[in-house]
């Protein structure tokens, strides 16, 4: 356990204490889904400590999300429009489709006209207190921008002039988002690396803290998926992927890809997927 984990634990405790006293969060949260799979909002629902109920009850006024909001059609669009005049944090999942002036991705019909994801992002992005790119697609285009990138997808930083906090991962772990949000609400901007990723989550490579690192050091390598050895020779991207999966794990700390005896596929690293493939290779090195 290093300092960052301890910091995160402390932070979570403080969030629980401070936010549970104040039952009236005063900042709004808008969560846009753009060109992607909507897997990050599902991942957010998988959060356990704190969970989604805590998030919307004690931390922030969750105003807008296509998957979860009760309103539909114009009523939904009016909520999006009215939030601009309020203090809000913008979370975005999915890449921005730039082909055809953004018309490859329309997220609703506003004032009688189609609202492109590109226009919605520009409308909301510059005025938000903070902007968080949630997941690989929003951070750098991800799978949505994989070659030959039919919809000309880019990460949201490419279309905004302001700073965007990047939380790459496919999907984004709920703790990375909620922890970042908690820091923003309590202390302002967290320490970011040169790629604008919060250092508290993205400081170390998977390889550095992998539970199978000693097997790598001893040269015990898996020959196939399911083997107990180090996954390096099957194409593991742990050595180049900076994220805390080995210590945080997934789904209530139940498991993680290497725990399932499979290689890390580098989903939290910039360049995923094109620069991380092949994901599985039986003949990388003999």
């Amino acid at each position: 356990m290093n300092g960052y984990e301890n910091l995160t634990e402390c932070l979570m405790r403080e969030v629980r204490d401070r936010f549970s006293v104040s039952c009236k969060p005063d900042i709004n949260l808008v969560w846009l889904e753009l060109t992607g799979c909507s897997g990050n909002i599902i991942s957010l629902l998988d959060g356990s400590q704190p969970n989604f109920t805590f998030l919307i009850t004690h931390m922030i006024r969750f105003i807008y999300n296509n998957s979860l909001m009760a309103a539909e059609g114009n009523a939904a669009m009016q909520k999006l429009k009215s939030v601009v005049a309020t203090p809000y944090i913008l979370a975005v999942e999915g890449a921005v489709a730039t082909a055809n002036d953004g018309y490859y991705n329309i997220i609703g019909q506003m004032d009688g006209k189609p609202l492109t994801a590109l226009a919605a992002l520009k409308m909301l992005g510059e005025r938000a207190k903070s902007v968080i790119a949630v997941g690989a697609c929003a951070s750098h285009g991800g799978i949505s921008s994989a070659f030959p990138n039919p919809a000309h997808c880019v990460g949201i930083q490419d279309v905004l002039t302001r700073k965007v906090i990047q939380l790459p991962g496919c999907p984004c772990h709920p703790d990375w988002f909620v922890g970042t949000l908690a820091y923003l609400l309590l202390y302002g901007e967290p320490e970011l690396d040169r790629m604008n990723r919060p250092v508290m989550f993205y400081a170390h490579t998977i390889h550095d803290r992998c539970e199978r690192r000693s097997l790598f050091d001893r040269g015990v390598f898996a020959q196939k998926l399911g083997d107990g050895g180090c996954m390096f020779k099957l194409g593991c991207r742990g050595p180049v992927t900076r994220i805390d999966c080995p210590v945080r794990k997934w789904n209530g700390r139940t498991n993680w890809p290497v725990g399932a005896s499979t290689p890390c596929i580098g989903c939290a690293q910039f360049g995923f997927p094109d620069k991380m493939e092949p994901f599985i290779s039986y003949d990388t090195t003999k």
Partner: peptide, 27 residues
């Protein structure tokens, strides 16, 4: 959340599991 926790036992993580593969699962 618990359904996804159950999935992750053999699947590694969810969404986007690693466990299902040719032949069955990796775990």
């Amino acid at each position: 959340m618990q359904t996804h926790e159950m999935l992750a036992v053999l699947g590694g993580k969810a969404p986007h599991n690693h466990g299902i593969f040719i032949g069955g699962v990796t775990v």
